[in-house]
């Protein structure tokens, strides 16, 4: 949509809405500038009310990391090289996942007034919420770099592999967010259940303990956890100059693509109902 006045007349025909999956994709493509605006709006409104604003999103993971380092290096004495960075990098990935999904569940509710009054492709609300958490993730590289310098982390070319890792993670996060966002309007207290599931998920992912403590017989199952995969794909090249084996990458691609497609299908199939329920 370059210019609304010179465009060929758009036609909306309710009987022609046969493939929500494709309609939504096209609608989003033609209104990408609204997505950009919504991201800006979210960012503005979120940080306007707190004194430290953006600083909080940098300080938060750092303070959390300190708590973990103090508690776990005293309690369990894990032998993990670059332990503070191990915690910080795992947390960056997991927080992006956890807060994106938590936010996605609330997006339909928060934007209820708008959803009930103007038509926009509904994925815009979800994607805008995820984008904010994506920006947060990128910002946490600042405290990460700081600690990396103090901890004398070795810089290497392998580090560039975090880019495909983050892209795959984003696909998975978008898919998962769309799934939970579809459930919430039908089941109001799903966010409570999801909170518990996320806590469980935190412990099932090697965020502050090493993978060696997992018993041999359950290792295969343990490693099928998508968050284990994405954390490893991110952390190994970043901290240990190693590129994870091919099978891990393939699993990461499968989880990313399957969840993204399924989430998009499920969400768009139901999104016309949201205006009735929001």
């Amino acid at each position: 949509m370059k210019n609304t006045s010179t465009d060929p007349t758009p036609v909306y025909d309710s009987a022609a809405l046969v493939s929500p999956f494709i309609d939504e994709t096209k609608g989003l493509y033609s209104r990408w500038f609204i997505l950009r605006r919504m991201i800006y709006t979210n960012f503005k409104t979120r940080y306007k009310r707190s004194y430290l604003g953006v600083i909080w999103s940098l300080l938060n993971p750092l303070l959390n990391m300190i708590v973990f380092v103090v508690v776990f290096s005293q309690l369990f004495r894990f032998q993990i090289p670059h332990y503070p960075l191990y915690i910080l990098s795992g947390q960056m990935i997991f927080t992006f996942f956890a807060s994106s999904t938590a936010e996605a569940m609330m997006q339909i509710l928060y934007n209820a007034t708008m959803i009930r009054r103007v038509y926009l492709p509904k994925t815009i609300y979800i994607l805008a919420g995820i984008a904010i958490n994506g920006i947060n993730l990128i910002l946490t590289f600042i405290p990460f770099l700081l600690i990396a310098l103090i901890d004398k982390l070795e810089f290497s070319v392998q580090m560039f592999m975090i880019i495909p890792a983050l892209l795959l993670l984003s696909c998975f996060v978008v898919g998962m967010s769309l799934i939970v966002a579809t459930i919430t309007p039908y089941l109001n207290d799903f966010s409570q259940i999801w909170g518990v599931l996320i806590t469980l998920w935190t412990y099932l992912t090697p965020l502050f303990y090493p993978v060696d403590i997992i018993p041999e017989q359950s290792l295969a199952l343990y490693k099928s956890n998508p968050m284990y995969i994405y954390v490893t794909l991110f952390r190994d090249p970043l901290l240990y100059q190693t590129i994870p084996e091919l099978s891990l990458w393939i699993n990461g691609i499968i989880y990313g693509v399957v969840f993204l497609l399924f989430g998009w299908w499920l969400f768009t199939k139901n999104s016309n109902e949201f205006a009735y329920r929001a």
């Binding site: 909306y12 025909d13 309710s14 009987a15 809405l17 009930r116 103007v118 038509y119 016309n272 205006a275």
Partner: peptide, 12 residues
């Protein structure tokens, strides 16, 4: 904003 449950709407 609301898609019809019955019938059809066309808007140009």
């Amino acid at each position: 904003v609301l898609t019809p449950k019955e019938g059809r709407i066309i808007v140009r």
